[in-house]
């Protein structure tokens, strides 16, 4: 469960204050599927980064699973990210010299999970995302859709409560994009919390809950 209260985020650019987020208050329940839309520069990515503990708010509090994570140190934040949050990026961010299987394994390697357990989970994830045939391929030998599926499998490898995706289809053609969204929707159906930032109204509309941001503030929040 995610609870944001009065979140403010300002950037100082050339002596001027840019308000990226203004008094954002938001609660996301466990297992919810949420899409965030809005014009460019409205603060969607900034919000997602704060939820993902990659960025810190200037004011306000953030509770993740009933724990106040606002004041944690960098390394504590890294540990929380490792255990509770899975990221999916627009540009995949796969490590080019590692195979699909090794990329999927990476978060578990960083967490020091037992190799036998890692191998088990990697195999399961490869099968789940239709990548078994591609397990030994490096990213430059994979299509965009396959890369994004590897990235999603990687995000899922630590079995996080929350998946955060910032324009996951932004770099894919329409068909592959829909395929990737299908994968994310399945995650949600299996009980995961999925937050997706997107520019595509069609994709946004498919979510159960739809957030619209304008100028750093939540303009609308629709369900159903």
């Amino acid at each position: 469960m995610i609870r944001l209260t009065g979140i403010e985020r300002t950037f100082t650019v050339g002596g001027e204050q840019v308000h990226a987020l203004r008094a954002v208050t938001l609660e996301i329940a466990q297992g919810e599927s949420l899409s965030i839309m809005g014009p460019s520069g409205s603060g969607k990515s900034t919000l997602l980064n704060i939820i993902g503990l990659l960025d810190r708010p200037n004011a306000g509090t953030y509770e993740l699973d009933r724990r106040d994570v606002t004041g944690l140190t960098d390394d504590e934040l890294a540990r929380v990210r490792r255990e509770k949050i899975g990221f999916v990026f627009q540009f995949f961010h796969l490590v080019p010299r590692l195979t699909a299987a090794q990329n999927i394994e990476l978060p578990m390697v960083l967490s020091g999970i037992d190799p036998a357990e890692r191998a088990r989970r990697v195999e399961q994830l490869l099968a789940e995302y239709g990548l078994t045939e591609r397990s030994g391929h490096r990213p430059d030998q994979l299509s965009g859709g396959q890369c994004q599926r590897v990235a999603i499998a990687r995000a899922m490898s630590m079995r996080p409560g929350v998946i955060l995706a910032d324009e996951p289809t932004g770099n894919l053609d329409r068909h592959t994009g829909q395929e990737v969204m299908g994968v994310l929707e399945r995650l949600h159906q299996n009980g995961g919390t999925v937050v997706v930032v997107t520019h595509d109204p069609e994709i946004g509309a498919r979510s159960h809950r739809r957030l619209r941001m304008i100028d750093g503030a939540v303009a609308s929040d629709e369900k159903g």
């Binding site: 490792r82 961010h93 490590v95 990687r154």
Partner: peptide, 16 residues
């Protein structure tokens, strides 16, 4: 640099 960013996002500490 972007790989380092990724590793940090995936939960690698400074020390790692």
């Amino acid at each position: 640099t972007s790989e380092i960013g990724l590793l940090r996002a995936l939960g690698a500490t400074h020390r790692a």
